[in-house]
Write a protein that binds this DNA or RNA. Sequence first.
DNA 1: CCTAGAAGGTTGTATAAGCACCCACACCTC
DNA 2: GAGGTGTGGGTGCTTATACAACCTTCTAGG
Lengths: 168, 168
Amino acid sequence: MTSMTAEITPQPLIVWRMLQRAQVQITRSLEVELLSAHDLAPAAYDVLLQLSEATGRRLRMNDLAERVLLSRSGLTRLIDRLQRDGLVEREACTSDARGLFAVLTEAGERRLGEATPTYLRAVRGQFLDHLEEEELRQCAAVLTKLFARCSLEAPSDSPGAAGVPAGA
Amino acid sequence: MTSMTAEITPQPLIVWRMLQRAQVQITRSLEVELLSAHDLAPAAYDVLLQLSEATGRRLRMNDLAERVLLSRSGLTRLIDRLQRDGLVEREACTSDARGLFAVLTEAGERRLGEATPTYLRAVRGQFLDHLEEEELRQCAAVLTKLFARCSLEAPSDSPGAAGVPAGA
DNA sequence: CCTAGAAGGTTGTATAAGCACCCACACCTC
DNA sequence: GAGGTGTGGGTGCTTATACAACCTTCTAGG
């Protein structure tokens, strides 16, 4: 059993450790698939996805950086790469000369479309498929609670965020 | 349901996205605390922790790399840094001249001891404290299931891992 | 207006991590 | 016991990311 001397890892801590490992391993497997099949890093996929969901398929750099949890400089470089590959473009913001939009291109949309089945397959295969509906609901509840109670920023489409009237 | 136009992100997917964000944000906050208070990156903390839990306070490089989910070269460099700071030492393996042990030093143990309250405070404050016992149990159950059913490698002290006969 | 300061983005630089490759030793077969 | 294969670990190089400093433009106050 886990105890026999002083208990170094109290039970709740183990949950944290498991969570960490699970997340890392799932993410890594996702990364491998996405990279090998579509030459797309997870962060890049995330950018394309966020853009595709945004109105006008465009987002201000700053806004986008927050959504994908990247520093602004990190996003600058990521967009550089995506632009080089023709998946996004930068477009000036007419109402604020400092501002720039990252805009999803046709090619970017296509690439996102190609990659999405891979993405879904990976996430389901490593995660979602192994949970019952009930368990999934529990996860959702727990996570929602965390976002509400910690200072965590919820994803734009989670319950508690704008466009999703929770109980609907 | 969540829909109102075409639902781009089916409900289960949202769980995944929330999980990702939560994990990243918690980890980041943990990193900030650990770095600012103890000049210890999370990976470094993890290494010290694993060593402290190992018998003889030592682990083979390869073994350690697996436990902290780092590539071998990544671990080589991390141990380099920790060794430079006097927190671990390398020690030859008598039974296999190729092998090396990473060994926790006194200083490393001390540093781990200092950092642990910070670590615990962060994990609890961002995560554990916000969940009821019941929710925690649900999380544990879900994660355990994942480790069992996916090809994920469980942490050494989780249920399902070696020295831990689940029900004990 | 003109200036002070804040905000949006990019650039310089540092760091951690991974992959591919390399060397030394171990094991196995003959 | 000599050669081939595999394993443990380290090195060279590339990459993604962060932080800090920077430039430009916007906004407020005088």
